[in-house]
Design a protein around this nucleic acid. Structure first.
Length: 427
RNA sequence: GGAGGAGUGGGUGAGUGGUUGAAACCGGCGGUCUUGAAAACCGUUAGACCCGCGAGGGUCUCGGGGGUUCGAAUCCCUCCUCCUCCGCCA
């Protein structure tokens, strides 16, 4: 959420931003609601001041034994008027908030203007695609024939878009999650959390998932609970409505969770394999920083995520998203995309964003400057480090062998206890 | 799930209808003293919003929301959170 005063003072900037992001905003009605609201507040507060003075007066006169009936009756009418004004203000507050919740974050000056993925900018590439002396197969074929994935039985249990890992396939998921967490906590300086996988409406609203993206999540019927779509929700809410000690910043935290998404509207997309699922595991990286350090920390966040791909020896690239492709809350986003031999292209495996004060404002996360003065909002950053299920896919595809086995990257072997996942048994 | 108890400023904790946004103490910050530090002493120490170029003025906030009243931290309703005991349970 942007600051109300800022939106009020910079309508042209907001208009331009909305156009660059490809959203439409009714700024005119915002302005009329805003000015009407302030007019009513001023009027209501004038009456309240009047009443406060009269009430003190009544107190004094009553002690002196004077008759206060007439003044009291007059103030009763004043109170009634105040109530009417306040009700109108409350209604306008609500509309104003609804409007502000639909205004996306202001992109950073370095973000390219564009409409979609085609306008994104490739920042750098690492490694090269693996060479095959056979035709590489898609991950679901390799995995099902090796007996580490069973999509038919997954569908029997829960339906389509769910995975059922088996044997070394299950172990590979665990190995990846542990490897990610170990590197981030032992080498990159993140504190690990293991949060609830279910979150409240209030938490989702603070992050900006609600009210806009209700259809993308699973809601537990008859409750206030939703299955978490990403640990970003839990980690943002860690410090909701708190004022942080500036000496403790930047705070770097991470969490492994399952993530749940309804994938409404994704019909027909990525239907084969397990790239797009209702449930997947992810290790999320998150930072709370001072405003002046957030962009430096964004670069570091991207490197922390990229480091994992490099240790796994996976060819990938870093892409900077353009205005039209960025998420609602983000001021600047880098995507990490990993090479997939079966498609001959790149697949998103991480998205790292600086939300600046956008989420912090909504969630009430502040710090008090050391120099004194007013508290200010921290900047928040989030990124996947990494999506476990998609990394699993990348390993299976990039390390598949002619015999159907999957050679394991060196760093995973201690976690796996084997050097390779064997192919189908010959008979 | 049942029965009790409690939520006040950074912390402890007073306050039960009227100049109380809130005593006192602790902590924090500034100062005096000191070679320096400690101690002692003095001062200071919430936030949001509205009006105003500014100086400044005003409103609201004692877990959240609603109500009673001229006036609510104080009375009523409701919700939330925490604690204790019982039951159940991975």
């Amino acid at each position: 959420m942007l600051d109300l005063g800022f939106v009020r003072d910079h309508p042209d900037l907001i208009r331009e931003m909305a156009e660059n992001r490809g959203v439409s905003l009714d700024l005119d009605s915002f302005q009329s609601i805003d000015s009407e609201r302030r007019r009513l507040i001023t009027e209501s507060e004038r009456l309240k001041a009047l009443r406060n003075r009269a009430s003190e007066d009544i107190g004094r006169r009553k002690q002196a034994g004077e008759d206060i009936a007439a003044l009291a009756a007059e103030m009763k009418r004043t109170s009634q008027q105040v109530k009417e004004f306040d009700e109108r203000v409350a209604a306008l507050d609500d509309r104003l908030r609804q409007f502000l919740l639909t205004v996306p974050n202001l992109p950073h000056a370095s973000v390219p203007i564009g409409h979609g993925a085609a306008d994104n900018i490739e920042v750098r590439r690492w490694g090269r695609p693996p060479a095959f002396d056979f035709a590489p197969r898609p991950h679901w074929e390799v995995a099902e024939s090796a007996g580490i994935l069973d999509l038919a039985r997954a569908a029997r249990i829960a339906g389509s878009r769910f995975a059922l890992y088996r044997g070394l396939g299950s172990r590979l998921e665990r190995a990846l999650a542990n490897f990610f967490l170990d590197v981030h906590t032992r080498e990159h300086g993140y504190t690990e959390y293991l949060p609830p996988f279910v979150v409240s409406t209030e938490s989702l609203t603070a992050v900006g998932q609600l009210p806009k993206f209700a259809a993308d999540m699973f809601h537990l019927e008859g409750t206030d609970w939703w299955m978490t779509p990403t640990a970003e929700v839990e980690l943002t809410n860690l410090y909701r409505e708190e004022t942080l000690d500036p000496d403790s910043l930047p705070l770097r935290v991470c969490a492994w969770t399952a993530c749940f998404r309804s994938e409404a509207g994704a019909a027909g997309k990525d239907t084969r394999g397990i790239v797009r699922q209702h449930q997947f595991q992810k290790v999320e990286l998150y930072k709370f920083t001072l405003p002046q350090q957030s962009y430096e920390e964004l670069e570091a966040l991207v490197r922390d995520a990229e480091d994992l791909l490099q240790r796994l020896g996976l060819h990938h690239r870093v892409v900077q998203l353009c205005t039209g492709d960025m998420g609602f809350a983000s001021a600047k986003t880098y995507d990490l995309e990993v090479w997939l031999p079966s498609t001959g292209g790149f697949m998103e495996i991480s998205s790292c964003s600086n939300c600046e004060a956008f989420q912090a404002r909504r969630a009430g996360i502040r710090y008090r400057p050391k120099s004194g003065g007013r508290s200010d909002y921290v900047h928040t950053l989030n990124g996947s480090g990494l999506a476990v299920g998609r990394t699993w896919v990348a390993i299976v595809e990039n390390y598949q062998q002619a015999d159907g086995s999957i050679l394991l990257p060196e760093v995973l072997r201690p976690y796996m206890g084997v050097d390779r996942i064997p192919g189908p048994a010959r008979r």
